[in-house]
């Protein structure tokens, strides 16, 4: 795909390897985050965990995890890294295959409005086998307005299938700021340890 051949490749080449990113400073200041019974990761310094207290609970949805928020750019897009475990019977995505089919290709059947999807590849999350892919999407700001600003967004996903359920690690950032925050994602990825086998 055109997108994979240009932007993604450039990003990949320029980035430090994940372990090098940790050694380059993230290791000293990163904080161990434990989602009890599900996984541990090293959360990047300065990125904060957040979750909503209303709507269905994690237990209701059978989706457990954390979302770390980084800097917000001038357009109001906040970089975020999420790590989640989807238990069997969860209300969001029944299987890892289903998650990939919903996110690695247009969820409603057409790559509308300039969205671009990279191919699904095989790689690692920590020491674990994973499928990963990248894509370019958009945010519209402000919402419900006549002429919203269309902001390009870069996203990357790693899906780790397990015997029971699966994990998803993902990175979301405005395209303009993607390169800056990506080492934090690579560092979280390298430190990922599932507690369920």
């Amino acid at each position: 795909m055109k997108y994979m051949n240009t932007k993604t490749l450039a990003l990949t080449v320029l980035l430090l390897p994940a372990c090098a990113a940790l050694q380059a400073g993230a290791k000293d200041t990163a904080m161990l985050y434990t989602e009890k019974g599900y996984f541990t990761v090293m959360a990047p310094a300065g990125w904060t965990n957040t979750e909503s207290t209303f709507g269905l609970s994690q237990e209701d949805k059978k989706v457990f995890g954390a979302e770390f928020l980084g800097p917000q750019d001038a357009d109001g897009i906040t970089a975020r890294i999420s790590v989640r475990y989807y238990a069997p019977g969860n209300l969001l995505h029944k299987t890892a295959e289903k998650f990939i089919s919903t996110h690695a290709k247009p969820a409603l059947g057409a790559a509308a409005g300039g969205r671009q999807y990279g191919p699904v590849k095989t790689g690692l999350a920590g020491k674990y086998y994973a499928k990963f892919f990248e894509r370019k999407t958009f945010e519209f700001i402000p919402p419900e307005t006549i002429s919203p600003k269309k902001i390009p967004v870069y996203e990357k996903f790693h899906v780790v299938p397990m015997k029971r359920g699966f994990y998803v690690l993902s990175y979301h950032s405005s395209l303009a700021a993607a390169k800056t925050g990506l080492p934090n994602y690579e560092a979280i990825l390298a430190s990922f340890k599932p507690l369920l086998r």
Binding site: S52, G55, E67, L91, L92, T102, H103, P106, A107, L108, G109, A110, A112, G113, R115, T137, F138, E139, F140, P143, E144, T145, P148, K150
Partner: peptide, 28 residues
Amino acid sequence: PTYLEQISPSHKNNAIRFMEDGVDALRT
């Protein structure tokens, strides 16, 4: 998919977000 070309880009985006990650995608 032709339907998506007949509504506004932000409505289209909301629909895609909802199908991908449910209510949380819109809440947060």
